[in-house]
Design a protein around this nucleic acid. Sequence first.
DNA 1: AAACATTTGGAAAACGTTACCCACATCACT
DNA 2: AGTGATGTGGGTAACGTTTTCCAAATGTTT
Lengths: 342, 342
Amino acid sequence: MDKPAPRRVTIVDVARHAQVSTTAVSKVLRNAYGASPAMRTKVQQAIADLGYRPSAAARGLRGQTYTIGVMLPELRNLFFADILDGITAQLGDSDYQVLLAPGCNGEKAEARVIDAMIDRSMDGLVLIAPVSAKSRLNEVARSVPTVVVGRHGSSPAYDSVTDDDIAGAALVVEHLAGLGHRRIAHIEHHETDRVRLAEMPNAQRAHGYREAMIAHGLEDQIDIASTSYTQAGGYLGARQLLDRPVRPTAIFAGADVVALGALEAIAEAGLSVPGDISVAGYDNSALAAFGPISLTSVDQDGRQMGVNAARLLIDRIDQRDRRTAQIKLSPTLVIRRTTAAR
Amino acid sequence: MDKPAPRRVTIVDVARHAQVSTTAVSKVLRNAYGASPAMRTKVQQAIADLGYRPSAAARGLRGQTYTIGVMLPELRNLFFADILDGITAQLGDSDYQVLLAPGCNGEKAEARVIDAMIDRSMDGLVLIAPVSAKSRLNEVARSVPTVVVGRHGSSPAYDSVTDDDIAGAALVVEHLAGLGHRRIAHIEHHETDRVRLAEMPNAQRAHGYREAMIAHGLEDQIDIASTSYTQAGGYLGARQLLDRPVRPTAIFAGADVVALGALEAIAEAGLSVPGDISVAGYDNSALAAFGPISLTSVDQDGRQMGVNAARLLIDRIDQRDRRTAQIKLSPTLVIRRTTAAR
DNA sequence: AAACATTTGGAAAACGTTACCCACATCACT
DNA sequence: AGTGATGTGGGTAACGTTTTCCAAATGTTT
């Protein structure tokens, strides 16, 4: 009863059953040129009869593995999950299977995972918010079709999909300024690395904040607390800002979790939101939408980003030497109950 | 400058560089018997010199791929993320790489993903809360080492790791009864399938609820709203319960999201928690721990479940025909602010 | 010194596909 | 009929490993 699993059926079995050559079967499998309709149906019948499934390992040795690897820094981040949804939706009915590595935080884990994916002959890679050195990314992209999501800057080797973080920051400042706020502060994720300073979304948001403040004639009101994109970072940043001689009337947190920490600090200081201070976040995560919190936040269409990434990747797999493209999507502002006129 | 990526270095290159046979290199790679220490160091040096990395595709054709596949129904579920953490922590410093398929909800998607993993010659599979027919699971487990997580019942083919949902439900009932509650209602996930009724955690929780009520002499107070494990399901279930001639004084929701929906309905009805009604959830998700919510909930140590699953899997890969094991972990109750004496 | 066991290293055959050719048949046009 | 283009099918050599032998060298026991 507990039979030891029969040998897997191979292309040879199919060929024999259909009375054709293995070459013919392979052609049918790949929709390749050189197989008559009659032959196609015959082979397909045999495949169905035998329940044949191609071995990805064997395929990988010569051709494609029909596998797309996705690397993302953190599984718990819902925004990343949205991107993933977009990718899988776009690839859903293709022959490609998406596989992802569990959260790989930090350059080292990232390198390890990317190597693992290359070792497994994946046909293409989607790197979400990678922190690796740019040279490394270029190198990777040279050895396998790659799309980078959520990191600004262009490359000759990989395509990229980003959200316009500068525009997103501007949306927030504009909204708050429109409500009459002048002392609009920002909590950013501290960044030292030169390249990242230019390419990482957090840096872009801070940059966009500064530009927008200047554009609204609020240059002298620019006030940034430099902590990290975590709840603790938000708490700390807000504490710093609340201790200023003149308190800000609005805080633009670089991420929703940061805003959450800020809300905590504000409540602790006995102040009310949005009565005393308005707070806006970034990412429009489920957290922001959650009723009792109801945080004004910038929405990046993660799903759309994923869809675009998948499209670019498939394109590149088909045509490895086309020019690289950079897709930049526009964010929108979702206004909720944590921001109000002052 | 945009050089076209040099050919990958293979085992043959390493062998030549180290002046040994490819067999020797292979032996060193796998720590196999038949290689002297001197030869080991020589080969390892060559591997390092050339930056050689084995091709998983080629390996898969003969031996192992050193890849573990994880299937889980939903990426956004934080409990699943905990399990995954446990798996990767346990496998972190082994040679195995964990890859997972993005959320595969439903029997069809599940089948597709499992097939894809088998096609890719993965060395082992961890199936988290699978809904497939048991016969199918057995069949899968016969063709590749498999551990099933979060589904009760034993199999001759696969190992399983579960949390004791009956005990979890009992914890809740005991806690509430201890607070003086008698009218303790339950919101369950409606289940019709026979096998699932016995094996799925949701069914076990409802079962445990019933048993515990009886054990506390509250048999005549048993009251179950049968909806689904979603926020909407919780809302609906609570509405049903609140409409009863005699309202329950406590609601045990089968999952945290369900509790959230229930809280919504209760607030809408103008009742207070825990003043008028106590509410308890299940899973102790981040949502439950979140300050403003502070939901009493049953904690399953997902991480520990993952660790155990990974251990069992590696064991089975090493020794395919050992007896199957079932590991059952004990949940604990985390008491927060949504439950109080009546 | 003979007989046997163990260690060390390698040659060569898988593994299941795809890619690159070549052969033949058919067809259309001179 | 001859020439070339096109369609159809297959033979076979890769691809990069692991596995299964086997042989030689070395060590150990009689």
